[in-house]
Amino acid sequence: MDLVVNATSLSRSGLSDFLLQRVSAVVLGLYALCIVGFLIVNPDVDQIRWVQYMTSPVMLIFGTLAILSFAVHAWIGMWTVGTDYLSEHKMGKHASFWRLLYQVFVVVIVFTYLLFGLGILWRLPAILL
């Protein structure tokens, strides 16, 4: 096994990656359901009501989980795509350079989303004060 390729995988275990991706997908799915469900039940929601809902302790933790799941899911997925298309087999010996570049790019984006997401979510309660 190519250690260079594997080293950048999230858990370095195919099984863990496989499970993490599925668990994170479930979390994201459920979180989406909660939001869509809330909007259906409360069609004429205003900002106060929305923020109250989003900052209830359960939704705050759930939201945090969802953002973390997003990061995990995106990284595993994008890593997989990168190792499919940017491989030594397809591109020759410079593949690792391009793949690393791509991975740095993905990390930066995912990390940015993660920080912004968490930042926004956890600053929400302040609106109500």
């Binding site: 275990s13 195919g14 990656d17 496989f18 499919d84």
Partner: peptide, 9 residues
Amino acid sequence: LDDPFSVFR
């Protein structure tokens, strides 16, 4: 078989 490629690809 428990690496990210052998089976899980």
